[in-house]
Amino acid sequence: MLTSVDPGTTGAPARGSALPGDAVRVPRRRQLTGLLIAVILLVLAVAASLVVGSRGIPLGTVLDALLHPDLTVTDHTVVLDLRVPRTAIGLLAGLALGLAGALMQGITRNPLADPGLLGVNAGASLFVVAGIAWFGVTSALGYVWFAFAGAFVAAVIVYVVGSLGREGATPVKLALAGTALTASLTSLITIVLLSNQEAFDKYRFWSAGSLVARDLDSTLQLAPFIAVGVLLCLVAGRMLNALALGDDLARGLGQNLVAARIVCAVAVVLLCGSATAMAGPIVFVGLAVPHIARRFTGPDYRWILLYSAVLGPVLLLAADVLGRVIARPGEIEAGLVVAFLGAPMLIALVRRVKLAGL
Rank of each mutant, 00 (worst) to 15 (best):
G101Y: 09
L185C: 08
T219H: 09
S4Q: 12
A213W: 00
R86M: 09
H291N: 01
G286V: 09
A93R: 06
A18I: 00
A275G: 04
V314I: 08
G323H: 04
C272F: 08
D300M: 03
S187A: 11
V43C: 11
W134N: 01
A223Q: 10
L32A: 14
A223T: 12
G286A: 11
L67A: 11
L222C: 13
N241H: 03
A48H: 05
T186A: 13
V230P: 07
R324H: 04
V52P: 06
A319H: 04
C272W: 04
V137D: 07
F205N: 10
L41N: 01
V129E: 08
V314D: 03
W206Y: 09
T190F: 01
P344V: 08
I157L: 15
V78F: 11
G98I: 03
G90L: 07
G11R: 07
S195M: 08
L71Y: 15
A250F: 01
F296C: 02
T33C: 12
V158Q: 07
V337I: 15
A236S: 13
L220E: 09
W206V: 15
D22L: 11
L44T: 00
R55I: 13
S184R: 07
E331D: 09
G21Y: 08
G178A: 13
L35S: 15
D22V: 10
A339Y: 10
A130N: 01
P69G: 03
T9M: 08
F296A: 06
V39A: 15
I292F: 14
H68S: 09
V268Q: 06
L174H: 12
L19T: 10
G21R: 07
I226S: 11
A208V: 05
K173I: 15
A48G: 15
A334M: 07
Q197M: 01
A183T: 13
V263I: 13
M1Y: 14
M104R: 13
P85L: 09
A133Y: 01
A318I: 06
V172Y: 15
L322P: 04
H291M: 02
V84L: 04
V62D: 06
F340R: 00
